[in-house]
Structure formats: C-alpha cells, structure tokens
Simulated assay, not measured.
Amino acid sequence: MTLRTGMMTKAPVVIESSNPMQQMLVSGNNALDTANQHDLLSKASMLQVQVQVAKQYERNIDKVRVEVVSLCQMPQLAEKAMYAYPKGGQVVAGPSIRLIEAIAQAMGNIEYGIVELQQTDKEVLLEAFAWDIEKNVRRSMRWTVKMVRDTKKGSYALNDQRDRYEMMANMGMRRVRACLMAVIPSPIQELAIETVKTTLMNHGRLIKPEQQGRMLDAFAVYGIERGHLEKYLGHKLDKLTAQEAMNLRMICDSLEAGIGKPSEFFAGYVDKGDAQPQNESVGRINEKLKKQSAKGGKEAGDGTA
C-alpha cells in the first residue's frame, strides 16, 4: 500500500469513478501554475503507458484462481486472512486487508494506496483508491483525518510526523480494503475465503499448546485473560478446536484494527471507563459463534485423530 502526497482544494467527498484519466484531468483544473500543469500531463502520459502495458499482458483468470488457492493454502496468510466485528446484534466476518492485498497481487495490473491531498496543522484530506488498470475500473474514497488522539484523560494534538503518518495509514487501511473489494470480482474473493477456511480447519482439530500460548499473549494486550476466553468458549482452552481458533483470530484482528471493543465480544468483560458490562445483544452474538464453532469442530473432527 502506498502513501502519496499531492495538493487539492476541493472539499472532501466520496468519489466513485470508473475513469482515472478523466478524474485526474478534472482535478487538474485547480492547478494554479504551469509547473502543476506540466506535472499533470506527465502523470497522464504515465497512466496511458500503464494501460497499454496492462492490455498487452492481460491476466489469465484460470491462472489467477490457481495462484489465489495456492496463497490461501499457506497457514501464514490464512491465520491473518479474516476478521470479525459486532454489528446489529450479529458478528460480521470478512476478508482482511492482508487477504485482499494477496488477491490483488495474484491478479496483477492493480494499483492501490492512499494519497495525501491537502494538509493543515489540524487535519489532513486523504484519498484511498484501487484501480484495475487492465479493466479500467477505479474506486476511491476521500475523508478528513483530524490530527488529534483521544484518550480517557483527554485529547491532544499529534505533532510528531510518525504519529501523524501512522494515524493516516491505520484509518486508510479499511478504506483501501473497501476500494479493492469493489474492483476484485466477488467469485475470486469467495474462492479465497473458502480456501482460507479449509486451510485453517485442515491444521487439525485441536490447537497445540504453543499456539494457545501465542493466542493468550495476543489477547493479553487488551486485558483479556484465559478466564474470559474459556467463558466465551464454554470449555477449557486446552480443548480449543481449529474452528474456535479461527473465530478468536478474527476477533483479535478486529481488536487490533480498532473495530469493536473487548466487552462487545466477551461476556463479563468491562472496558475501562465503562459503567456497564456488555449488552444482551452480545450474548446472542457469542451464542451464534459458539454454535458455528461446534458445527465446524464436528465437521473437522470427522476422520481426524
């Protein structure tokens, strides 16, 4: 994922354009000097070359499918390929940015990233984009990031360049993911998700002790202890199945990405500063995931030691 800089004076809006050449020329109308116009023409020429090369070396969809399956059969990718978050009383799961990036690399001829359009001391205007160069399909989103970090003790301005960059990158990842999902064909995404699930299930019915230890360490960062996990699972952690581990990985990845809070997933957990534990809808979420885990564990356990 790239983070580029530029200048623009338009107000932040959400853009969905299928023609990147046209979008660039429209943006260029705001240029104030000849140098900017020259830079615009240079970029337009580069885009034309990219399109010509992409058309010359078109992707083979059958080879793409084979490569996607091969990538998703790698445990290192499969373990980071999915995430989950609570929404409307249910847990919604989907492909992570890592999985979507892997699919984009397998397809080729896709450019994506984050562009910094305008910056002040207090806020930054950003654009996330994904462009299928071969099919000339582009999706982008613009939004404003306030350079302020909120804490329980109050808010403070971000002046350090590294802190500002990390905030922009973190907030941009979900938007880049959404843009990529808009240009990648849904059958390819579905193939990747099913392959990932199979890969995780084929790792064995019971998770090894060292894997359990790494999972405990990952959740400990958020103050989630063994007791919380075992209450969520309904049994001791040493009986953890591959399906249950997959659900927990998705939850942990969601917490890492700032999607949801521990109390929204784990009964009895109270976030610091929260007056009440989780609401009743989260209990229904947990019951649903437990049923899915039990069903998946039963299917994975057939024929395994």
Score class of each variant (00 low, 15 high):
E230C: 08
M250C: 10
M21R: 02
M246R: 08
I133P: 07
Y165G: 07
Q211S: 11
L206I: 03
A245H: 06
K291Q: 15
A267K: 09
R65S: 09
G94Y: 06
W143R: 09
F265Q: 04
L216Y: 00
N36T: 11
A300M: 09
I188S: 11
A245I: 00
Y232L: 14
M82P: 04
G303E: 10
S263W: 00
E116T: 03
G303N: 06
E230A: 07
I110L: 07
M171S: 14
P185Y: 02
E287H: 03
M147I: 02
L25M: 13
D163H: 10
K298E: 15
R142F: 06
V145W: 01
T2K: 04
E16L: 07
C179S: 13
S263Q: 09
E134L: 08
R164Q: 15
K197D: 15
G234S: 11
S140L: 08
T195G: 04
P86G: 06
A11C: 02
S186L: 12
D217Y: 04
D62F: 02
V148Q: 12
P262M: 00
E230G: 06
K43S: 14
E127M: 15
R142W: 07
I193Q: 06
A31M: 10
E111V: 01
R59G: 12
T241G: 15
L71Y: 02
E123T: 02
E101A: 11
I184Q: 04
I188M: 15
G172F: 01
N286D: 12
F129E: 04
V91P: 01
A84H: 01
S263L: 03
G204W: 00
Y83M: 13
E244F: 03
I114Q: 13
G283P: 05
H203C: 10
P187Q: 12
G258A: 09
V137F: 13
Q161Y: 03
T151H: 04
K55V: 00
G234L: 06
Q22K: 08
Q189V: 11
V176L: 07
M181N: 10
M168I: 02
H235M: 11
Q90D: 11
T304C: 12
M168Y: 01
L117I: 06
R205K: 08
T144E: 15
G296A: 09
R205P: 07
L158W: 03
M246L: 12
Q22A: 15
M250K: 06
Y222V: 01
H38W: 09
K146G: 14
A31C: 12
T2E: 11
G172A: 03
I251F: 08
Y165H: 14
I110Q: 09
W131L: 12
W143V: 05
Q48T: 05
Q56V: 02
M168H: 02
R98H: 10
T120C: 10
I259F: 10
A104D: 05
Q292K: 10
G297M: 08
S293R: 01
Y83V: 06
V196G: 08
Q243Y: 09
R226G: 00
L233F: 02
L158S: 10
N202Q: 13
L229M: 05
N36W: 11
R149Q: 15
K197N: 14
A300C: 14
M246G: 08
D271L: 05
W143C: 13
